[in-house]
Design a protein around this nucleic acid. Sequence first.
DNA 1: ATTGACCTTCCAGTGACTGGAAAGTTTATT
DNA 2: AATAAACTTTCCAGTCACTGGAAGGTCAAT
Lengths: 133, 133
Amino acid sequence: MNIGQAAEQTGLPAKTIRYYEDIGLVTAPRHGNGYRYYADRQLEQLRFVGRARLLGFSIEECRSLLSLQANRQRTNAEVKTILKQHLNTVDHKLVELQSMRSSLVELEQACPGDEDSNCPILKNLAGNNIRVD
Amino acid sequence: MNIGQAAEQTGLPAKTIRYYEDIGLVTAPRHGNGYRYYADRQLEQLRFVGRARLLGFSIEECRSLLSLQANRQRTNAEVKTILKQHLNTVDHKLVELQSMRSSLVELEQACPGDEDSNCPILKNLAGNNIRVD
DNA sequence: ATTGACCTTCCAGTGACTGGAAAGTTTATT
DNA sequence: AATAAACTTTCCAGTCACTGGAAGGTCAAT
């Protein structure tokens, strides 16, 4: 199977699949004409990476996960450690985004959004903090 | 005031302040020796951008906000529109992250994290979905 | 023989910085 | 006055994970 079909099968763009090969994440053998050849093993690896990426794992984390999957001596603990670290990162991002969101909602409510020009949003950004109390 | 003190005053790294000038976001006049000179106006703009960035506004959004702030003909509506768009973006990201998080937590709970090698996390990534029902 | 759909590599751009090199300037110390 | 330390300048490269596009090779069908 050529890269186009592999893309179709895995849901990953062909460009991305080539990129993964470039960085040595998922490599594919070649036909005589230089075309990449995708068999079950490669498709599985690509789908594996695709799913891990959907969960937000970085490329380097995907690399580690792929290598653990290939290693029969791995332990559940090793895998779980990577997951926990990633979960921590996600939690940090969530806290950040939620704090942004609550500030934004506060500003949204403070601004009437009319044709006036005395915008509380700009005032806040300029340092005049909104006092709600 | 030179860039180092401006950095100290605004909390932005000098590198970042130079970058903002590079992209024409906040420009500063120069001393005779070529050093950038920061007066109140520039400091205010830098702090403005700094706060907007903390709220997650993109550089281009910051540019729009700065230009609205400089424009007396602006309306609250124009400012609020930018904020609402950004809030939408933040909400989308939150949904995505929360969905990632719940999948990750599920996987975390499914994996005992012991010295075994039959890892449910890897199984899930490989396509063997966890069945909880 | 030619069209069109593939495939290849390589280079450049994204966003928002950040690090580092090489060189000029100012300030402080000796 | 010389020197060293601390500042500043510009420019180039790297980050992350792709994505777009150009130029050219290959293959299947008409």
